[in-house]
């Protein structure tokens, strides 16, 4: 079968409240499913936790120092010019939010999302759900789905700079 249908996920047009409530990024970066793009020139090295309960590793945090809709209004776009990404304790990368010349469609196998990722449930339980999800994904392997259309990305193209100790209160 050389032809594979490419579905368009219904959620790309309707905003799901679950994604919005946990989305801490500025609203400009919000997409209906909450997916966003983060580009780093380089790789993030991190130790993988040996704890079976951990499904992800916390590597750092994103700070939008100029983002302040309370003062500058919601339409202000100057904040896009500066984003900090603190990696670990001592490194900071400076980047910006860029509008993509051509938006990206995020394409995955149909059904890849399953029920996973909607709020952090009990970790063990989540592992179980993920396993089931993967099996399901194998079933309709041939069907692809456009999960989301992303128009902005956060890009870090500069070298990381060393920063001292504290991570808090650097933004202002």
């Amino acid at each position: 079968m050389p032809s594979v249908p490419l579905h368009i996920a219904p959620s790309t047009t309707t905003n799901t409240s679950a994604a919005t409530s946990t989305n801490a990024l500025p609203p400009l970066l919000h997409t209906p499913t909450g997916l966003a793009l983060l580009e780093i020139q380089g790789t993030i090295n991190f130790p993988i936790s040996t704890l079976a309960s951990e499904t992800s590793t916390l590597v750092g945090k994103l700070v939008f120092p100029l983002y302040n809709p309370a003062i500058n209004g919601e339409d202000d776009t100057k904040w896009m010019k500066r984003v900090y990404f603190y990696v670990g304790r001592n490194q900071r990368m400076t980047g910006e939010v860029k509008k993509l010349g051509m938006p990206f469609a995020v394409v995955g196998r149909k059904g890849w999302r399953g029920d996973e990722g909607r709020g952090g449930g009990v970790d063990v339980e989540m592992g179980g759900v993920e396993g089931g999800d993967r099996e399901e994904g194998r079933g309709d392997e041939d069907e692809l789905e456009i999960v989301e259309v992303v128009r902005y990305k956060v890009v870090f193209s500069a070298r990381p700079e060393p920063v001292g100790g504290g991570e808090d209160g650097q933004g202002d």
């Binding site: 946990t22 909450g34 997916l35 793009l37 580009e39 780093i40 995020v106 709020g119 193209s157």
Partner: peptide, 9 residues
Amino acid sequence: NSLYVTQPT
């Protein structure tokens, strides 16, 4: 570059 797709959780 490392290009990540991120999701809020």
